[in-house]
């Protein structure tokens, strides 16, 4: 599903060069639920961003469903992100000016769908995450757990095959964190969605099928 081959990521400024990822080789299979662990600053989020085409590697190859994306332009990358990948961020990244329903509809705006179809699909996924009663609310009127459920609804509304979650429970208490984890587990089992999750929490990571550990930008066993 996702294949990384000898991926490096180096950040350069005028005076300093920082290696965020070094020689990463990774293959994620379809339907797999994988977690990435490691100390802060070890490159977990960078790896996830490269897998999700939100960032470009300095060298190495990234393949999504056997498609080598290194040479793809902005439009093609945008299309892959739209059709194949859903993101869940630690800080939710909801648009405060839009209602819950409008936030969830965002990925569908970039597809050829009517307003009615978009609304129908968004309501469907909001029901799945238990937020049917909050569709007209705005993000600031919701709790952290509810915000993350909206973010999950937004990530899955376009039926992507891959969900990339960057510390999805990082800003939540343990009860809410467990709720979010349940939703992700259910998605993986019922819809066979491939999920890659960055987490600091070993208890959450242990619930996934495989754990990848990073240290100073390198993969460790």
């Amino acid at each position: 599903m996702i294949k990384l081959n000898v991926v490096d990521k180096v950040y350069r400024t005028d005076t300093i060069e920082t290696t965020a990822l070094k020689n990463i080789n990774l293959q994620v299979e379809k339907g797999e639920f994988l977690s990435i662990m490691g100390p802060s600053g070890c490159g977990k989020s960078t790896l996830l961003n490269i897998m999700g085409l939100l960032d470009k590697p300095s060298s190495g190859k990234v393949k999504i469903e056997e498609l080598e994306v290194g040479t793809f332009g902005d439009r093609k990358l945008a299309k892959i992100r739209n059709r194949k990948i859903g993101f869940v961020f630690q800080s939710f990244h909801l648009i405060n000016d839009l209602s819950v329903l409008d936030n969830v509809e965002i990925p569908l705006l970039y597809r050829r769908l009517s307003g009615k179809e978009r609304k129908g699909r968004a309501l469907e996924v909001l029901e799945k995450v238990g937020l049917s009663a909050r569709v007209k609310h705005f993000p600031r009127q919701l709790s952290g757990g509810q915000c993350q459920r909206v973010a999950i609804a937004r990530a899955i509304v376009g039926n992507p095959e891959i969900i990339l979650a960057d510390e999805p429970t990082g800003n939540l208490d343990s009860v809410m964190g467990a709720e979010i984890m349940d939703i992700l587990m259910k998605l993986n089992k019922e819809a066979n969605t491939t999920i890659v999750m960055v987490t600091h929490d070993i208890h959450l990571a242990e619930q996934t099928q495989r754990i990848i550990r990073l240290f100073d930008g390198s993969q460790v066993m």
Binding site: G52, D74, K79, F87, Y110
Partner: peptide
């Protein structure tokens, strides 16, 4: 967010 969910630069 919009870029992450499929908006291209031109959009």
């Amino acid at each position: 967010v919009r870029k992450s969910f499929g908006a291209s630069s031109i959009t």
